[in-house]
Each structure stands twice: as structure tokens, then as C-alpha cells.
Design a binder for these strands. Sequence first.
DNA 1: ATAGACTTTGTTAGCGATAACAATCAGGCG
DNA 2: CGCCTGATTGTTATCGCTAACAAAGTCTAT
Lengths: 341, 341
Amino acid sequence: MTTPKRRLPVMADVAREAGVSHQTVSRVLNDHPNVRADTRARVEAAITRLGYRRNLVARALVTKRSRTLGVVSFDTTLYGPASTIYGIEQAARTAGYFVSIVSLKSIDADTVREAIDYLVEQGVDGVVVVAPQRSAGHALENLPPGLPAVAVEGTHSADVSVVCIDQKEGARLATRHLLAQGHETVWHVTGPHDWLETEGRLEGWRAALEEAGRPVPEPLAGDWSPRAGYEAGKSLAAMDGVTAVFAGNDQMALGVLRALSEKGVRVPDQISVVGFDDIPESEFFSPPLTTVRQDFDVVGRHCIEVLLRQIDVQLNGGSTAYERLVVRPSFVVRSSTAPVR
Amino acid sequence: MTTPKRRLPVMADVAREAGVSHQTVSRVLNDHPNVRADTRARVEAAITRLGYRRNLVARALVTKRSRTLGVVSFDTTLYGPASTIYGIEQAARTAGYFVSIVSLKSIDADTVREAIDYLVEQGVDGVVVVAPQRSAGHALENLPPGLPAVAVEGTHSADVSVVCIDQKEGARLATRHLLAQGHETVWHVTGPHDWLETEGRLEGWRAALEEAGRPVPEPLAGDWSPRAGYEAGKSLAAMDGVTAVFAGNDQMALGVLRALSEKGVRVPDQISVVGFDDIPESEFFSPPLTTVRQDFDVVGRHCIEVLLRQIDVQLNGGSTAYERLVVRPSFVVRSSTAPVR
DNA sequence: ATAGACTTTGTTAGCGATAACAATCAGGCG
DNA sequence: CGCCTGATTGTTATCGCTAACAAAGTCTAT
């Protein structure tokens, strides 16, 4: 790899090649209207001839805009965050923005804050924080002033815009579906403590039961992992009178199914199970899982919309109110639920 | 959000505040040794007092290093790419680098090339391309000269460094395990055409069968999705003499399990099934899946190592040979396989 | 005390682009 | 035909930082 140390062409080189000033080159590059067609052509020819690519770093320095958005997220290996980020990236690129990602292993106000600072230092024009833990929310309460920011599934703080899925509604959908099938009540396996999703789903579940005047069983604590669902499933199998379970997410539902199957409990004949997320695998669980679908793509797109709006306001003035965009989940009925007999 | 238009402090502000020159501030920031302890303290105090953060864009302009690495990947929603990227991001950040991601919907030489150009324009110091399709490999054959680059699961081209998992070996492990259990032969559900993983796994499977002098059945074409596995599973259930199936990945294995279960075929009693990847869910499939584990974290870390080495060479001179790092997969035995009776 | 060597600090000149302003060139109109 | 207006192009300054060099200041050895 003995690279010939020939440095990359810069604007001045193109200018010389085309016989114009570097400013004219800049104008061509930025689609400035006042450039004669033939000059434009000449410059464009020179650009291709030299293989010129503009240096966005230099551009960012003078415009004070990097056209890069920062994303801070917890465990990007999980389906939810991964899908959200995918949606964010696609939307951002369409809008001509780069995406710089920081994925956190542990999440608390300090780590999140540190990650944001890191991104700010790098000069991002705004940040999306996918940090659905309550504790992480505090990091959003005193952001660097003037930094456009959006939280996904964020706190209910009034200091930052939020895009989220209506967890409570999703949980309600799941619970009502089960009640409508004649189940006396519904057991619930929760997500980890401190997550906003956990709280929302818990609330929705409880609300649906209370609305129907049903007893509210003690929820079983989980942590999103299939293993937690498995443990919960074993407990449920050992209990009397359990006919319906609402798992906090699909992976835990998988664990529940596994445990029930091991104990010889048939789903949905003896116990109905509902999940949350609709991961691609759910449809092929044994049995195929009835679940709540979250449209992460839409969430990602909304994040970028909100963020770009904030950036625009910052540039051109205008007023910003903090927005709160709630995406409604939908319900997918498959074979893991059935009317009680 | 009526931001007070007070601009962020710059080095000169810190210099004034500390009563030194801006260069001294720069020295403190870059841990230059020749700064007296008390001046350093004074500068640091000024920095915290003003809440100064250095502008990495300006720094990048003059140093010609952005400390940002680009990652181009296909469908970051899939477990494999997502995990690899996670590993890359963690390793990069530890090394003081940012990661800018472009995730592609469709992948071919042009799209990949475009994505790389996009990243180069942004000034990345190097790129990792997670593009396991053969067609995408061509984009790596004439990269911008001098650009440090690493491919994950890349082509066998000699023009670029590659970090990959030994797919062939993994498939061999799976197939041999089944043969060792007394199965006469092993059926295979492949990944999508054109993927290197598909080819590697196919080769390993075939090699293991041939080594043992067994018949090689016609492989069933899949596309990584559970649905494809499901379809393949239905076909297999309808065939005679099938006792062992090696699915190209865990998701397809899930589909196979589902189809077999629907057809009343018991796993592993009647048919044994093996997957590939060891996604977190596999352990809780019905039955828990025997599979090949890939350590994506290690792959990510290796990518960064190789890339940083290339960047170092570019900066300080030295020789680079293109490296090829092969990570060995391991085998996880669970309950979806059993000796033939 | 003083040259020489090494620290420590300051000064100046870019990096490669855009912004702001100045200059030139056409065309239209009184 | 000259002046004004708008389109087109060029010139200069600047973004915030580091590199390179210059200038003090400190210390040791003679």
C-alpha cells in the first residue's frame, strides 16, 4: 500500500483547472442560481476530471453546521432500539444528514450526559436519545442550551420533545383482548424496573383490568430477556387458575411459552399468551404469538422530523414548543390466544 | 426556547480568561508535556469556569483526521449486523473514535460505493464495510486510494483486509454433530443466493457430508427469514427419510421447527434441527436449539484493531499487508438434536 | 558570570471551505 | 447614449483549531 502522497484536490485546484475563482466553484457546488450555464458546465467538467470531492469538515467549520445528527442509545442489539435507529438513519440520510451513534452499555444520567457531550464536541447539529429508562431521563433535563434534541420514549419532562409509542394503549389492547375472550383476569410479566415502557405497559394492563372490574394479580418481575420469561412461566405454570398471560415483550413471551410447554401446559388451550413488539420471529413461535405491534420505523422518521424542525427554528428563528408525538400501536392476533372454555 | 445568542466559548476566550496564549490552551488540551503545572491548572480552571468544549471540527480541519470511522452495513435490524456494529462501536469509542453509520436497504456495488464516497466526503479516517454479499464485494476492489478499510465477511479479494467468521468450519461442526448422532445424511436450508455466508455454510455442509461418504441432498433455498424456514420445513415434513436438518441461521431454524410442529413431526425424536448464529432467543425455542455460535463482539473488535493499524501506518509509515482474520465459531448443543433411533 | 541546552510560552500562518462585499458585464429605458 | 438595475464573477476575511517557528526564561557547567 505505498500510497502516492498526492494530496486530494481542493477547491482551488478545481478553480484553476476550470479557469474561474474558487468562489465560483463553491457556487456551483451549492447550486447558487447566479452562475452562467457554460461556466457551471466548465466547473463540473473540472470536478469530474480531477475527481474532486468537497471537504465537509471545512464546510462545517464555516457554516457551523455539520449535517451530522447524534444518536445515543442503550443496547443497540435489542430489536426495538435497533429498529428505531434504522428508521432514524434512513430518514436522516434522506434529509442529507449523517448519523453518529453512541451505544451505551449501562445507562444512567451521567453516562447519557457524557455521551451527549461527546457528540456535541464533535459538532452534531442535534441529538436523538433513545434512552427509555427513567433515570436516563434526568440527563435530558439540562441539556446544553440551544441544542436541538429529541427523546424516544422519554420522560414526561416539558423540557424536551418526545416521540413515543403509546405503551399504555398497547397494554390495554392486549389485556382487553384477553378479557374479551372470557378470561377472568390476566397475569403480567413486567420489563425491568425503571424503564418507561415497563411502567406504561404495567399501567395499561392494570387500567384495563380495573375498568373491567377484575382482580389485579401481583405482576411478575422480568427484564426483557427470554430467560426471565422462562422463569416467570415456570411460576405461572405452578399456580392455580392462570388462564391468560400478558408478557412485557415478545422475548419474554417466548420464555413463557417455553416454560409452559415444558410443564405440559398447552397454549392456547389452557393458557393464552400475548407479547409486545412483534419481532419478526413472533409469527413462528410455537404457537405463533398474538402481540402488540410497534412501528419503530415511524418513530424513527418522526424523530428526524421533529429534530429538523428544531434545527430550522434555531437557524431561521421562529418559535418552538416542545412537541410530544405519540404513535399508536396496533394489535396482531395469532394463535397463542383463544377463548377460555 | 429563546436561546440567548451567546456564542459558545472558544479557545481564545479560555486563553484570555487564563491570561495565556491560545496555543498554551491547545497544549493543555493535547497533554503536551512542556506546560508548567501551575499554568496548566490555571487553564483548566478557566476551561471549567467557561464550560469550554473544544471544537473537533476545527481540529479535524487542520489535523486532517476526524477521529471518525465510517461503517457501511446492510440491514442493521438483523441480529448479526447489529451485533457486529455494536462491537465496532464499543471498540471504536474505547479507542477514542466516533462511528458514523450508513445502513443500506439494498446492497450492490453501486450503493456500497456511494455510501463509502459519502463517508469519505465527510472525512472519516477509515471505513468498515459489513457487506456480506458477493456483489457488494466489488465495491471494495477499487476503493479511494489510501483509504483504510476493512470488510466483514468480505470477498476473498487480496485488495482489502477482511475479518470474518469461519463459516465453513461452523457448518462442518453442525453437520458432523448430526452425522455423529447416527443420521444417514443432513438436509440443508440455505441463506439467500449471493451471500458469502450462504456459500461458506453450503460448502462446509457439503464437505462434511462428502468426507463421511454420505449422499448430498439437494439444498432448499431460503433467505434468512423465519418464513423461508417455515416453507422449507413444510417441504421437508412431506419428504421421506428426512431425519436431520441444518438451517442456514437460527431464524430459519425457527421456521423449520414451526412447520414440523404443525405437521406433527416431533423434534428431536423424529427430526433433529441445527441452526446458526445463536441468537438470544434460540435457547428458548421449542425445543431449545442446537446451533453454531458466532462471536460478533470479537469480530467488531478485530475490525477496529485492523483499521487502526492501517490508519497508524498511513500516518507514521511502515508496511501494510492486507490481513485476513478468521474467527472460529463454537458449537452449542441443546435439545433440538438427538441420536437417531 | 555566561554560553549552551532545554523548558516554557507566544506569534504567525495556514487547513479548505463559505460569507460579505466589490467589481464587472449586460440589458432596458429615458 | 449614459445611467440604473440585476446577473455574474472575483477578492478578502473568517470559522477555531494546530503546526512551525521565534522568543523568553531556567538551569547547569564552565
